[in-house]
């Protein structure tokens, strides 16, 4: 479904601030995979996400989505293959527009936007049903401005929008990191339901080790621009946070000096 082949990316090449973020990284996801990616700050997780989504282009290597080579395809064009949820709850929705307007725009992802009405009455029942599935009471707030919703509600809405039209790949970029623990858990429940309902191939970045272990069928740990650990299937199910920490030290060859990851 997704294939990243030998991708490298260096920021500020040829300067004193030269920063090789990804160093020949390869990754292949099978259809229906739910892969969690964990790693410290500067491991290259976000850069990988940005290269997959087209915000950045790699210096070397290719990116394939399904049968398409999307390495240099502009962000807006590859959007038809991708559903994305961002770390910042503000980034996935248009705050000054209504809930239903946001959903309608998401339903047009991947198709040409013309002079048809943005809001189509035949879609309302479907939108209401989707919102009701969140169990957040949003089905009664179709015409509320999104900026009036809480961060958790906005993230849940973004999840609905990202999973609409069955994207080939769902990208979750630390989408619960900005939420309080209780809301984060709620959003993860919604995530799990959305992903399993449509068997979406999913790539989720997280800082939370527990989350990385609990969700998905495969766990990848990144360090200094490389994959240092790749655990799937039964091995992953039996994994504990302690084991993961130990594995990380062995794999990366240095002690884990990242408080944020340790604490979470």
């Amino acid at each position: 479904m997704l294939e990243v082949v030998d991708v490298s990316k260096t920021f500020n090449p040829g300067t004193v601030n030269e920063n090789p973020v990804l160093k020949g990284l390869s990754l292949k996801l099978s259809p229906g995979d739910f892969v969690t990616i964990i790693g410290g700050n500067g491991a290259g997780k976000s850069t990988l996400m940005n290269i997959i989504s087209g915000v950045l282009f790699p210096d070397h290597g290719r990116v394939y989505l399904g049968t398409h080579d999307v390495t240099y395809m502009p962000e807006y064009r590859r959007a038809k293959f991708l559903g994305r949820v961002f770390q910042d709850p503000m980034q996935g929705t248009a705050g000054d527009m209504e809930v239903v307007e946001n959903l309608a725009m998401a339903s047009q992802r991947g198709s040409f936007r013309g002079l048809n009405w943005n809001l189509k009455s035949r879609q309302f029942a479907y939108f209401q049903e989707l919102l009701a599935s969140l169990d957040l009471g949003l089905e009664n707030r179709l015409h509320a401005k999104v900026k009036l919703l809480s961060g958790g509600q906005r993230q849940a809405l973004t999840l609905l929008m990202a999973s609409m039209n069955q994207p080939d790949l769902l990208l979750l970029d630390e989408h619960t990191a900005a939420l309080d623990p209780k809301t984060a858990q709620k959003v993860m429940q919604v995530t799990q339901r959305v992903v399993s309902a449509d068997h979406l191939t999913t790539l989720m970045i997280t800082h939370n080790m527990q989350q990385a272990i609990q969700y998905g069928n495969r766990l990848i740990m990144m360090d200094s621009g490389k994959i240092v650990l790749d655990i799937a299937g039964e091995d992953k199910k039996e994994l504990t946070v302690e084991q993961l920490l130990a594995k990380f030290v062995t794999a990366s060859g240095n002690a884990l000096a990242n408080d944020r990851m340790l604490l979470s």
Binding site: Y76, A79, F86, G92, M105, R113
Partner: peptide, 18 residues
């Protein structure tokens, strides 16, 4: 709607394919 959303949140508009 895509034009209105562009002034509001361009990153979202690109993520939604416009």
């Amino acid at each position: 709607a895509a034009i209105r959303a562009t002034g509001n949140n361009p990153a979202m508009v690109r993520a939604l394919g416009a």
